[in-house]
Amino acid sequence: MAIIERKDVEHIARLARLALSEEEKELIQRQLETILEYAAILNEVNTDGVEPSAHVVALTNVLRPDVRRPSMPKEKALANAPEARDGYFYVPRILDE
């Protein structure tokens, strides 16, 4: 039984905005399966009585005081934008007609 089906690959590719060829889908399907099979080894561990953890490091409450710090210059903020206009990031149409 396939853990990952072709339609799962297509769905994930769509969510990640990736246009995959049929060969790539095939390849990625196999690779994802290998990854998931590997991760499935964890299912063999007996976790009875183990609290679920939310993080890999045993730290909590890393907080900062509510203090302002200087922001970066606008020119620098916009420097990597594919396109900027009037001090804004420019983006193409968001919704379909």
Binding site: A77, F89, V91
Partner: peptide
């Protein structure tokens, strides 16, 4: 409004 806009500008 957002419907029918050709492009949008973003302020972060």
């Amino acid at each position: 409004n957002i419907m029918g806009s050709e492009y949008s500008l973003v302020d972060y």
